[in-house]
Amino acid sequence: MTNSGIPPARTPPPPRRRVLKTNADGSPRKRPVDWEGNEQAVLMRWLLGEKMRGEPVGQLYDVTYHVPNGGQRSKSTGAAMKRQGVKSGVSDLVVMDARGGWFGLYMEFKASPPHTAALAESQREWLAQAENRGFCAVLAVGLEEAKAVLRAYASLPSTRPGREDYRPINIGGTEWRKG
Score class of each variant (00 low, 15 high):
Arg45Tyr: 03
Arg45Ile: 00
Trp46Asp: 00
Leu48Asn: 00
Leu48Ile: 03
Met52Thr: 08
Met52Ala: 03
Met52His: 05
Gly54Arg: 02
Gln59Lys: 14
Gln59Glu: 09
Tyr61His: 11
Tyr65Lys: 11
Val67Asn: 15
Pro68Ile: 10
Asn69Ile: 15
Gly70Leu: 12
Gly70Thr: 15
Gly71Val: 13
Gly71Gln: 14
Gly71His: 15
Gln72Lys: 15
Arg73Ser: 07
Ser74Asn: 05
Lys75Pro: 10
Gly78Val: 07
Gln84His: 09
Gly85Phe: 07
Val86Tyr: 14
Val86Pro: 06
Val90Pro: 02
Val94Leu: 12
Met96Pro: 01
Asp97Leu: 00
Asp97Lys: 03
Asp97Gly: 01
Ala98Glu: 01
Ala98Trp: 01
Gly100Asp: 02
Gly100Leu: 02
Leu105Gln: 02
Tyr106Lys: 10
Ala111Tyr: 09
Ala111Glu: 08
Ser112Phe: 06
Pro113Ser: 07
Pro114Lys: 12
His115Val: 06
Thr116Ser: 13
Ala118Gln: 14
Leu119Glu: 06
Glu121Tyr: 10
Glu121Ile: 10
Ser122Arg: 13
Arg124Cys: 01
Trp126Glu: 12
Trp126Gly: 02
Ala128Asn: 15
Glu131Phe: 10
Phe135Asp: 03
Phe135Leu: 06
Phe135Gln: 03
Cys136Val: 04
Ala137Val: 07
Val138Lys: 14
Leu139Met: 10
Ala140Ile: 07
Ala140Lys: 08
Val141Ser: 03
Glu145Trp: 06
Glu145Arg: 13
Glu145Phe: 05
Ala146Cys: 06
Val149Phe: 07
Tyr153Glu: 04
Ser155His: 14
Ser155Gln: 15
Leu156Ile: 03
Ser158Cys: 08
Thr159Pro: 06
Arg160Asp: 03
Pro161Arg: 13
Glu164Met: 12
Glu164Val: 12
Glu164Pro: 08
Asp165Glu: 15
Arg167Ile: 10
Ile169Cys: 08
Asn170Ile: 07
Ile171Asn: 11
Gly173Ser: 01
Thr174Ala: 09
Thr174Arg: 15
Glu175Cys: 09
